[in-house]
């Protein structure tokens, strides 16, 4: 198996606070690996170490089989990064943003111009090549950031929340572009808050919290393992229902005004519950990644 990223016991400590605590993971060539976690889980710290922006406190990290501590320049030359915050150059036009960025990789000017033209076509911004960055919409800017990350023909792209703050149309457009890239065999490491995004794009997921990896696996397998196939949701549950759940030892989350019951043979269970405990206030639905996420990381706010 060929690994694009190999992280071993990677740790990041900021002023005594452990943001990332001895995590180990691998990214296989050609796969899309997703990092999920609430705010402050250590996702951004992890990927910042991966692209050599932030030095590790301890551990070993290699990208393309090269040590990030010693071969950072070569590694950075072979990967593309979409940072969370918009870092497009507002002093330059759309086209210049790509060309100037390409020059940072020491790509010859002629080659970057040609590449920039192709990328603007790819992200459907060729008609805005001479526009100022500030004239673009949020979705256009994000597509331009993505194009910029591809200027050096990277073997790996690292995306930190690529669709946060976008409207549904723009989000789907970014997803489409990312799916195109993935089908071409590009390796992708991405962080996201959107479970739909993770389920749709990622081959494998890592769910993190408090700087540690909680679980790792394929989206569908994680759902079955941690939230079953189906969920019965009951609003305004009665004490009799709670008693019933206890007696049957059902996997559930009691949120006070709502109870979620996870299971595999819920079809039957649903009928029983509906008949005995509620007539209107219960529903049956398929389990989702969001159920897994909330079960593992808890429901309290992270601020």
């Amino acid at each position: 198996m060929q690994y694009v990223i190999q992280a071993q016991s990677v740790t990041k400590v900021f002023n005594g606070f452990t943001a990332v605590n001895e995590i180990s993971f691998k990214l296989i060539a050609g796969e899309c690996l997703g990092l999920l976690g609430p705010n402050g889980a250590g996702k951004t710290s992890t990927i910042r170490m991966t692209y050599g922006f932030s030095p590790m406190s301890s551990g070993r990290l290699s990208v393309f089989g090269l040590d990030i501590r010693t071969h950072w320049r070569e590694i950075k030359g072979r990967l593309g990064v979409c940072q969370q915050e918009n870092s497009l150059d507002p002093d330059l036009t759309v086209q210049q943003n790509l060309e100037v960025f390409g020059r940072y990789f020491n790509i010859p000017a002629g080659a970057t111009r040609e590449k920039a033209r192709k990328l603007l076509e790819f992200i459907a911004l060729d008609h805005r090549r001479d526009a100022q960055v500030s004239e673009l919409s949020g979705g256009m800017m994000r597509r331009l950031v993505l194009a910029r990350a591809l200027i050096n023909d990277p073997e790996l792209v690292i995306l930190d929340e690529p669709t946060t703050g976008l409207d549904p149309q723009s989000r789907h457009q970014v997803w489409e572009k990312l799916e195109n890239l993935r089908s071409e065999g590009l390796s992708i490491l991405l962080t996201t808050h959107y479970m739909e995004e993770a389920a749709r794009l990622c081959d494998r997921l890592i769910i993190m919290d408090h700087g540690e990896i909680l679980v790792e696996g394929k989206p569908a397998e994680l759902i079955i393992e941690h939230a079953g196939r189906n969920v019965v949701e009951i609003a305004q549950p009665t004490d009799e229902l709670r008693e019933f759940i206890r007696s049957r030892d059902l996997t559930h989350d009691d949120l006070g005004r709502r109870i979620l019951i996870y299971g595999d043979e819920n079809d039957q269970l649903f009928d029983i519950i509906r008949e005995r405990f509620c007539k209107e206030n219960c529903s049956l639905r398929g389990s989702t990644l969001e159920d897994v996420f909330l079960r593992l990381t808890g429901r309290q706010l992270r601020e």
Partner: peptide
């Protein structure tokens, strides 16, 4: 404000 240095740091520049 412009995060220009951040973007540069994601390239082979030190």
């Amino acid at each position: 404000y412009q995060k220009t240095f951040d973007a540069m740091m994601a390239t082979p520049l030190s």
